[in-house]
């Protein structure tokens, strides 16, 4: 299938990227080629095959519903952010 400029801009939005003109250009080319490659799967007949989403052989690993001791404290986690005020993370205005 053909990937248009609008498709790249749309995928950029879905991915939360502010893409430059130059990037849109190079991504158009690269992503078209990658999609062309993965589209060869079309020729494989998968009728009646169940999908596999994980290859872990176990199901329903339960644990008791107790709050476990955490490896990191609130202070340690807040120390990782750029701006913090009154134990909250500060970001630019939302609206």
């Amino acid at each position: 299938m053909e990937i248009k400029r609008e498709d790249i801009i749309h995928l950029g939005k879905l991915s939360n990227f502010d893409l430059s003109e130059k990037e849109i250009e190079s991504l158009s080319k690269d992503i078209s080629e990658i999609i062309k490659y993965i589209s060869q799967l079309d020729e494989l007949n998968t009728d009646g095959v169940e999908p596999t989403y994980q290859v872990f052989e176990m199901e329903n690993v339960w644990r008791s519903d107790e709050i476990l001791e955490q490896d990191a404290s609130m202070e340690q986690l807040l120390a990782l952010t750029k701006e913090e005020k009154d134990n909250q993370i500060k970001v630019p205005k939302v609206l």
Binding site: G12, N16, F17, D18, S20, E23, L27, P92, K93
Partner: peptide, 23 residues
């Protein structure tokens, strides 16, 4: 604003191959 914080951080912070895979 917050939206441009996400967009700019992700645009500047990821390598081209990261972007290709995410897209």
């Amino acid at each position: 604003d917050l939206d441009s914080l996400y967009g700019n951080t992700r645009s500047e912070g990821f390598m081209p191959e990261n972007k290709r895979r995410i897209m």
